Simulated scan of single mutants.
Amino acid sequence: MLSGSCLCGRLAYEADAELEGIAHCHCRTCRKAHGAAFSSVAPVPRQKFRWVRGEEVRRSYESSPGKFRHFCAECGSHVMAERIAQPVVLLRLGCLDTPARCENQRHIWRSDGASWYDPKAVWPELPEGLMAR
């Protein structure tokens, strides 16, 4: 089972599913919504997804026709996205609380990617939040 929640913990979900694929989306809309170079998402079957708390803080934004991004009104975390007619919902993996692994990953919408980020570049990795100069 997968579980996830927003930054403040008021909005949470569960999904009786495994991660079968991960997409790191570089489209302009995902970059703007998350304030990052890309958004990592994974589809899970709609019928296996459920909200477990936070209905009072859950808000939605229709970012393109038929696509709804669900987020917490308290802390702003984007938690899940969906197209109503699709059989899957997209979990925003930055909000995943369950440890998970998935070898099936890809970058999508690279044609729309941030000019300052190249996923092929190798950069130093630091164990914690120290900014290298």
Score class of each variant (00 low, 15 high):
residue 123 W to Q: 15
residue 96 L to F: 10
residue 79 V to A: 02
residue 31 R to W: 00
residue 8 C to M: 01
residue 1 M to Y: 13
residue 80 M to N: 11
residue 15 A to L: 13
residue 19 L to N: 08
residue 107 H to R: 05
residue 33 A to T: 11
residue 101 R to V: 01
residue 12 A to I: 03
residue 86 Q to M: 08
residue 52 V to E: 06
residue 7 L to M: 14
residue 50 R to L: 12
residue 92 R to T: 09
residue 47 Q to M: 13
residue 91 L to H: 03
residue 116 W to Q: 07
residue 98 T to K: 08
residue 103 E to W: 02
residue 111 S to F: 02
residue 10 R to H: 10
residue 8 C to V: 06
residue 18 E to F: 14
residue 56 E to C: 03
residue 129 G to Y: 06
residue 73 A to P: 04
residue 86 Q to G: 01
residue 100 A to G: 10
residue 29 T to W: 01
residue 83 R to N: 11
residue 120 K to T: 12
residue 97 D to M: 08
residue 28 R to S: 01
residue 33 A to R: 08
residue 84 I to N: 01
residue 130 L to I: 05
residue 95 C to W: 06
residue 19 L to W: 03
residue 131 M to R: 11
residue 96 L to P: 04
residue 123 W to R: 14
residue 82 E to P: 06
residue 85 A to L: 04
residue 103 E to R: 06
residue 74 E to S: 15
residue 129 G to S: 10
residue 46 R to L: 11
residue 72 C to Y: 03
residue 109 W to M: 00
residue 132 A to L: 15
residue 74 E to F: 14
residue 81 A to E: 11
residue 27 C to S: 01
residue 9 G to Y: 02
residue 6 C to G: 14
residue 67 K to H: 08
residue 69 R to T: 13
residue 100 A to N: 10
residue 7 L to Y: 12
residue 110 R to K: 06
residue 96 L to D: 10
residue 25 C to I: 02
residue 28 R to K: 02
residue 79 V to K: 01
residue 99 P to K: 12
residue 59 R to L: 07
residue 71 F to N: 02
residue 80 M to K: 11
residue 59 R to K: 10
residue 50 R to H: 12
residue 39 S to Q: 12
residue 76 G to H: 05
residue 60 S to L: 13
residue 12 A to W: 03
